[in-house]
Amino acid sequence: MLKILKDLSRKVIRSLFGPKKNIKIGFYGPPNAGKTSLANLLCQDWTGEDIGTVSEMPHETRGVSFKEKVEIKHKGKNLTFKFVDTPGIATRIDYEDFLKFKINKKDAKKRAKEATQGIIEAIKWLDDMEAVIVVLDSSENPYSQVNITIIGNLMARKIPVLLVANKIDLKKSNIKKVQAAFPEYEVIGISAKNRLNIDEFYDSLFKLAKKV
């Protein structure tokens, strides 16, 4: 009896003060910002598997995908995450936009339909996130209404946020503009494609996890 009580109290203390297990982190942002590229990089580093496919065509990710129990060791610390990769959020979907990527009309329409459903799914998942990595394309204007809506919602829901300014390898990349747009958040510039600044990104990820 005494042993059972001791075990129980140990479990309670661990759950209250010990490291949090499987921190649920969502990857959100506009289409083609590099959410899946970054999620893949992390999953490849620690599980050897991708979370999804990447493409130059917008809305390549059209459904929410997960990677459970991604255990990351960084600078002597050890945390376990559940990564949730979400479709890019947009206010408009036009199948004709996909035609320029040389796919046929039928496939373009199918892709558009899946993309609309993916956006709805991504929005529904917002409330379930413990923290969110917002991935923006640092070569694009950060003041887009979609960015403002996503970050405004996370702020209103008090969900901890890490802002990732991706694609710093591009000439047009401007991290300072992203920082100026969202000064209340930590902004980390990376290139998921070329693995630039990833060690610093891991620092930021662990800082984010502390806020959960």
Partner: peptide, 18 residues
Amino acid sequence: LRPEEEIRLIEDTMAMVD
């Protein structure tokens, strides 16, 4: 609009596009 209204507007818009 409030943030929650903006995101709801996007959600309902996507349902209509569909």
